[in-house]
C-alpha cells in the first residue's frame, strides 16, 4: 500500500509535466485550430534556455525561468506570425506536416547551439532535500512541481473564465465568425494565443531541468504522451487536458511499478480505445 501511495505521488508530479505540455497544445488547438506537433520542441527549448541561464550564466532559478519564457515566447511569436498563419486555411494534414518540420529544425538547432551535451539535472539549493511521506523520502522539488502544476491550472482557469481576454479566446475558439463580427482582431488574437501556448510549454521545460535529463531528441519524445493526454481529455478542452494528464501520469507511474513491460502499450491502448469509443474525449464538446 505504501508503495502504491508513494508511486502514485510520483506519478502526480510527472502528470504535472504532461499537463503543462498538454495545456499549451490544447490552447493552440482550441483557439487557432492547429495541432502543433512541434509543441514538445518548445518545451525542449524552454529546458535549454533555463538550463543555460541557470548553469552557464549563473542566474538564479526564478530568473532563469523568466529567461526561458522570454526566449520561447519569441520563438512562438515568430513561428505563428511567419509560418503557421499562412496555413490555417489548409487541410489539417498540411498543418501536421508543417509543424513536424519544425521538430527537425528545432532538434538540429539545439544540436548546433548546445552540441550533443546532455542537460544533466542540477537541483537548485532552494529545493534540495526531501520530506518523509509514508516513511520514505519524497523530494521537495516534486512537491513543488505538483503545486506549480495546480497553480498553473488555477491561473489558466481564472484567465479563461474571469478576464476579458479569456472570453475573447473562448469566443474565437467556439464561434469564429461571431468573434470576427463583434470586432475581435482574429489574427492578433491567434498570435497571442499561440505565444501563450508556447509559454506554457516553456514553463514545463524550465521546471523539468532540475530533475529530468534533456537532449535534442526530447521534443519528439515529449509530444507523443502529450497527444495521448489531450486525446483522452478531449482535443481542445483544458479541463480534459488536466484530468487526462492526471490519469496518464498516475497510471504510467503505477504501471512502471507493477507491470513495467507493457506500460507504453497500455498508454497507447487507452488512447486508441478512447479514440474509437469516444473520439471527442472525456470532456470534448461536439467539435
Amino acid at each position: 500500500m505504501d508503495n502504491f501511495i508513494f508511486q502514485a505521488l510520483n506519478g502526480l508530479s510527472s502528470a504535472m509535466f504532461l499537463w503543462l505540455v498538454a495545456a499549451g497544445l490544447t490552447v493552440a488547438f482550441g483557439v487557432c485550430g492547429i495541432l502543433n506537433i512541434a509543441h514538445g520542441s518548445l518545451y525542449m527549448m524552454g529546458a535549454y534556455f533555463a538550463f543555460t541561464s541557470f548553469q552557464i550564466l549563473g542566474l538564479n532559478f526564478w530568473l532563469s525561468i523568466v529567461f526561458a519564457l522570454i526566449g520561447v515566447g519569441i520563438i512562438g511569436f515568430l513561428m505563428e506570425r511567419f509560418f503557421l498563419r499562412r496555413i490555417y486555411a489548409q487541410p489539417i494534414e498540411f498543418q501536421l506536416i508543417l509543424t513536424f518540420a519544425f521538430i527537425l529544425v528545432f532538434d538540429n538547432l539545439t544540436k548546433m547551439i548546445w552540441g550533443t551535451m546532455l542537460i544533466i539535472p542540477t537541483m537548485p539549493s532552494l529545493f534540495q532535500g526531501t520530506i518523509p511521506i509514508v516513511g520514505r523520502p519524497f523530494p521537495i522539488y516534486n512537491l513543488f512541481i505538483i503545486g506549480a502544476g495546480i497553480g498553473v491550472a488555477v491561473g489558466l482557469w481564472l484567465i479563461m473564465e474571469r478576464t476579458w481576454w479569456g472570453k475573447k479566446l473562448r469566443a474565437a475558439a467556439s464561434e469564429r465568425e461571431m468573434a470576427n463580427a463583434i470586432g475581435i482582431n482574429i489574427p492578433a488574437l491567434f498570435t497571442a494565443a499561440f505565444v501563450f501556448a508556447a509559454l506554457l510549454a516553456a514553463i514545463g521545460g524550465a521546471l523539468s531541468t532540475p530533475i529530468r535529463v534533456c537532449d535534442s531528441g526530447v521534443g519528439g519524445a515529449v509530444i507523443i504522451p502529450a497527444f495521448v493526454v489531450t486525446v483522452i481529455g478531449g482535443l481542445g478542452s483544458l479541463k480534459g487536458a488536466f484530468v487526462g494528464a492526471l490519469i496518464i501520469g498516475v497510471i504510467s507511474s503505477l504501471c512502471t511499478l507493477y507491470i513495467p513491460f507493457i506500460e507504453l502499450f497500455i498508454l497507447y491502448l487507452i488512447m486508441a480505445v478512447v479514440l474509437i469509443i469516444r473520439p471527442q474525449g472525456l470532456f470534448g464538446g461536439e467539435r
Binding site: 489539417i92 507523443i224 482535443l235 507493457i262 507504453l264 502499450f265 497507447y268 491502448l269 486508441a272 479514440l275
Partner: peptide, 25 residues
C-alpha cells in the same frame, strides 16, 4: 477508417506506437 483528418492521424499514431511497444517488449 471511421475517422478522418486529425482523429485518423491520432488513431494511426496510437496503433503504430502500440506495434512499436510490442516489438520492444
Amino acid at each position: 477508417v471511421r475517422h478522418t483528418a486529425i482523429y485518423f492521424a491520432m488513431l494511426t499514431l496510437a496503433f503504430g506506437m502500440m506495434i512499436f511497444s510490442l516489438t520492444q517488449k
